[in-house]
Design a protein around this nucleic acid. Structure first.
Lengths: 211, 211
DNA sequence: CGATACACTGACCGGACGTTCAGCGCGGTG
DNA sequence: CACCGCGCTGAACGTCCGGTCAGTGTATCG
């Protein structure tokens, strides 16, 4: 059975509203984004939103899930390529930098959900539904690290923790880039992260005389 | 001229209110922290707060400045010690982990201000007053990195950017620790960061045969 | 073409929150 | 003791916003 006409309309509305929500939240921030403004941005009345989403909370949650799904697709694509550990790491970083560069607006939403605000119940719920999304993001890198550790290509640490460190550190770089007028080429930042990670920042005098 | 009695009372009130603000914001988050609750926590009436701070915004700002001053003192103390680059880096990391461990509550405030919300004017103002504080934090590490680069102990990158990466990455670790029931010893995380930074995560097979 | 269904609208409601200010009580003063 | 000044109080006010629902326009059906 193909999509009925109603389904198409429904899908269109949901999508319009979600896109509007991302735009408004990006512009104003999570706290200052009102249902009224989201509705206006989507070109519908406030009440209409409530035909498609139970309440503001559900709208934000669903919107975030949709948006982060796109990010995950990109990261997975980067990770599915074969190659050495270094190549895959570099690919992952590139995908991340590129995605956030193309979706600058999404960034604020991303961070607003990272550190939830609002009532205790809201916070708990937000945590329950959004935390796994962030975790999944870290996990993707952790898996790659684990493989490399098992293969002996990389020193053994807790892969989760190392992944966390790298992801968040590089997010800070993305954030910095967004606020700069003329950021250096992406490749420069990626290079710094990858090569620091691989061989450290100490000058390699240890190659000759290992202390 | 010594402090008059009124000054002492004034100082006490300001301090009580700021401490209450930190506690409440930490518990509820920036958006959910109401003047009512901060007043109750400080043991004064809501109106009293307005005798010492112009409005909510000023309260938050001043409170944050006071609190982050304490952090900076600690970091400076760690950096003022003499020692090798590695020792100073380790000291800095330790100071940071310790501070946030002792001031868990402060963390949420810290992050709420990092990504400002609210009206556009508020955001701009918050950015103007708080951004330099964060920047100062990164700068402290950047200076150490720069020194080490000049001394040839460390490969040359943009010190600011590298510092940013390290600071934010390690903040993520602190955050992770706070949410864990039984976090591993601090030293383990510190060790991971310091040794990754210094010599990278690649296994040092290059010592014998550089592939 | 009239009746019915239904997506949509937006004025309205209730509640929350920041801010104000008239008044209260208390320590000091004459 | 009577009076005064002032730090403090908290009820009241205005604003804002999420959520509701009676009403409206339109497409569909008999």
């Amino acid at each position: 059975m193909a999509k009925s006409k109603e389904d198409v309309v429904q899908e269109f509305r949901v999508q319009s509203i979600q896109e509007a929500a991302i735009r408004v939240i990006s512009r104003k921030g999570m706290a200052a984004a009102t249902m009224q403004e989201i509705a206006a941005e989507a070109g519908v009345a406030k009440g209409t939103i409530y035909l498609y989403f139970r309440d503001r909370e559900e709208l934000v949650e669903k919107t975030f899930e949709t948006a982060i799904g796109e990010l995950h697709k990109r990261l997975d694509a980067a990770l599915d390529r074969e190659g050495t550990f270094e190549e895959r790491l570099r690919g992952l970083m590139t995908a991340q930098f590129t995605f956030f560069n193309e979706n600058r607006e999404f960034f604020r939403l991303y961070h607003s959900l990272r550190m939830p605000e609002g009532s205790a119940t809201q916070q708990r719920r937000q945590k329950r539904t959004c935390q796994p999304q962030f975790r999944a993001r870290v996990d993707r890198l952790a898996v790659v690290l684990k493989q490399a550790m098992d293969a002996g290509e990389v020193r053994v640490f807790d892969p989760q923790r190392l992944a966390l460190f790298v992801i968040e550190g590089s997010i800070a770089l993305v954030l910095e880039r967004l606020s700069e007028d003329a950021p250096p080429p992406e490749s420069e930042d990626i290079e710094m992260v990858v090569s620091t990670l691989l061989s450290g920042i100490a000058t390699p005098k240890s190659k000759r005389s290992s202390h």
